[in-house]
């Protein structure tokens, strides 16, 4: 911090070494996605090579890739929207009209996350089968929104709690109803917080693997399930795997980088702001 320039270089080297080491697998995947399948398995590993877009072309040409991508987009946006619609009124009510039970309700919501998903795999699978929700986009949206709901409520609650009640009271003096108050006063005030919450929810749903692997097969399968299909490969596939992976993670990585500072609240259930 207040160290002189000369004593700073070991820190600089250490910091960059750690950063590059952690990022290396992603960088290597990115690099491999531009190799041919033969160069991808070359030994010694090729660092300089003639780049090709062939893998991206091959992945995008697969009719099903776009289906998986579409499912990922629909599921993560749909689950996030559903979770927000449910969570905004709940967080509003708990932040501005707390009762003696509010604390217990918040903790109880958090406790639903303690239920290990494997513990309810069997009943959910059977229920989804009997309700005709297996391998449907709606079925996945439903389960993903339930699983992010506690985090979304918590995160919104901590943002709403920071809004001084005086502001809402002032609008009420002007004759605003509760719905007006929520839609026209609170939501505009908390847009950055709601956006951060939505981004975190999108990221969690996009990367969700347990339910997409177990509840979908073809029609509603997302990119997590699609990439998992590379685990039983035929022939050389590393370059194509890399291209498919790069396409699958790029949007979320960018979202994550943009919202990393804000999402800490949600990820720590409000413990770190």
């Amino acid at each position: 911090m207040r160290s002189t320039r000369s004593s700073r270089w070991p820190l600089t080297v250490a910091g960059w070494a750690v950063a590059l080491a952690m990022f290396f697998p992603i960088a290597w995947m990115f690099l491999t996605s531009f190799k041919t399948e033969i160069t991808a398995v070359a030994s010694p590993p090729a660092v300089f090579f003639h780049p090709t877009l062939e893998n991206y072309r091959a992945v995008l040409a697969r009719a099903d890739y776009l289906e998986f991508a579409k499912n990922s987009v629909v599921v993560s946006l749909g689950s996030t929207l559903l979770a927000l619609v449910l969570a905004i009124p709940a967080a509003y009510s708990m932040a501005f009209f707390p009762t003696w039970r509010t604390r217990d309700i918040l903790l109880w919501m958090l406790s639903t996350k303690m239920l290990p998903v494997v513990g309810v795999l069997v009943p959910i699978y059977l229920l989804w089968r009997d309700l005709g929700l297996l391998d449907t986009v709606f079925g996945l949206i439903l389960i993903d929104s339930i699983s992010v709901l506690p985090i979304v409520v918590w995160m919104l609650f901590t943002y709403f709690r920071d809004v001084p009640a005086v502001i809402l009271e002032a609008s009420r003096m002007d004759g605003a109803t509760q719905v007006d108050e929520l839609l026209h006063v609170l939501l505009p005030l908390c847009t950055p917080g709601i956006a951060a919450t939505a981004l975190l929810s999108i990221i969690l749903c996009w990367n969700e693997a347990f339910w997409s692997l177990n509840l979908t097969t073809v029609k509603a399968a997302t990119l997590t399930a699609f990439t998992a299909s590379f685990s039983s490969p035929e022939g050389l596939f590393w370059a194509k795997l890399s291209a498919a992976s790069t396409l699958s993670i790029a949007p979320i990585l960018i979202f994550g980088w943009l919202s990393q500072r804000q999402m800490v609240r949600g990820l720590s259930f409000g413990a770190v702001k």
Binding site: M22, A228, F230, I252, L253, G256, W257, Q260
Partner: peptide
Amino acid sequence: ICRLLVIAPFFVMPTVSALIWKNML
């Protein structure tokens, strides 16, 4: 920049992380 690089793996979907490590590394 280092901070961004270090946190990046958290945003990679688990199936991709596992496959990249299993195969290419």
